[in-house]
């Protein structure tokens, strides 16, 4: 067996492509092994006896964008709050950049940027002062913080509004300022809790473009979202959580292929029993309210031909992450 050396730290460790090694007795084939930038292991948290997160584990590689998806109450916000000390986990641990959240919180917070779900801009300060004062919390000296603030105001397109008071800003401007503020310490890890919730389409697209730019610059990102198009576009990998546990984890493409297939056929208000021949033929069907969803995979042409003969109203479209999400989590309301 060839010798190899494991280097601790964020730099990638290269193994020969055919290297096989044993990890706790199981054989693992390693292509390019990467020391994760963020590693969560067995994280658990209950609030007054009600479990919010139950034994969650995942890792994020350097420069990777990772999404946490799940219905309300799945434990997404609790998980990310554990990463910067707002919530103390009951069990499990989290390492960021090799630092333990329990003991090195100050150092972790110095290298992370946090875009929280709720608006917590300082309403007593103007747009530019929000960046300056926030930068001072990190100990960045005045000249440098002003230089970075100028750059960030251009980056989030708020340079023309720099003197405005926070209460005068629109929802989209506030969110952009929150993102700009989270970048003042030039973070290695950006944590975004629902970064585009409540934004109009223009504002969402601007936020997405900026997040893609940060991704190109090599910023590691962890984001939660309710928008599947957002997750599909931004995330290299994602996890769908439910009831505090991880249900599935993979790349968006692989999740769609594995759980749904390439296309989805929707039957709109079909007569009773219209879907039965398909389910009897082994095609996966899901019924919800007045729509039946068929996941015909390689039988798609066949299914479409049969449907056009029956006269049932239907539509065929490419499968997306939302299909995966609803299949895994179910369609019932969570409130």
């Amino acid at each position: 067996m060839r010798k190899f050396r494991v280097v601790l730290g964020p730099s990638p460790v290269h193994f020969p492509d055919d290297t096989a090694l044993r990890v706790r007795g199981s054989k693992v084939t390693v292509g390019v092994a990467m020391e994760p930038y963020l590693a969560v292991d067995g994280l658990s948290k209950s609030y007054d006896g009600v479990p919010a997160v139950r034994g969650l584990s995942f890792t994020i590689s350097p420069a990777e964008t990772y999404g946490l998806l799940g219905p309300n109450g799945a434990g997404k916000s609790t998980t990310i709050s554990c990463l910067y000390g707002l919530v103390r986990p009951d069990a499990g641990r989290a390492l960021i950049g090799g630092l333990d959240v329990r003991t090195e919180l100050r150092r972790i917070k110095a290298l992370a940027g946090i875009v929280p779900q709720d608006d917590c801009l300082d309403p007593d300060l103007s747009v530019e002062e929000n960046l300056w004062v926030y930068g001072h919390y990190f100990g960045i000296e005045s000249g440098e913080v002003r230089r970075r603030a100028d750059e960030l105001l251009r980056f989030v397109e708020l340079a023309d509004h720099r003197k405005k008071k926070v209460p005068e800003l629109s929802g989209g401007m506030r969110r952009r300022l929150l993102i700009g503020r989270a970048l003042i310490n030039q973070p290695k890890l950006l944590i975004l809790d629902e970064p585009t919730t409540g934004l109009d389409p223009q504002a969402r697209h601007l936020v997405w473009s900026r997040l893609r730019e940060l991704k190109r610059r090599g910023v590691t990102m962890l984001l939660t979202t309710h928008y599947m198009d957002e997750a599909q576009m931004l995330c290299d990998r994602l996890a769908i959580m439910d009831h505090g546990r991880m249900s599935v984890e993979s790349t968006p493409r692989e999740l769609i292929d594995r759980h749904v297939g390439a296309s989805v056929v929707e039957l709109h208000a079909p007569p009773p029993g219209a879907a039965r021949p398909f389910s009897e033929a082994g095609i996966e069907t899901h019924e919800f309210e007045d729509i039946v969803y068929l996941f015909p995979r390689d039988q798609t042409p066949d299914v479409l031909r049969k449907l056009s003969e029956t006269g049932v109203a239907f539509a065929s479209r490419p499968a997306n992450l939302e299909d995966v999400f609803l299949k895994i989590v179910g369609r019932g309301l969570r409130d």
Binding site: R106, A110, C120, L121, D122, P123, Y134, F138, G139
Partner: peptide, 14 residues
């Protein structure tokens, strides 16, 4: 109301 404390403790300040 303003969540100022929460936002400050997201920085290295305890």
């Amino acid at each position: 109301k303003q969540n100022t404390y929460r936002s400050i403790i997201s920085t290295p300040v305890n």
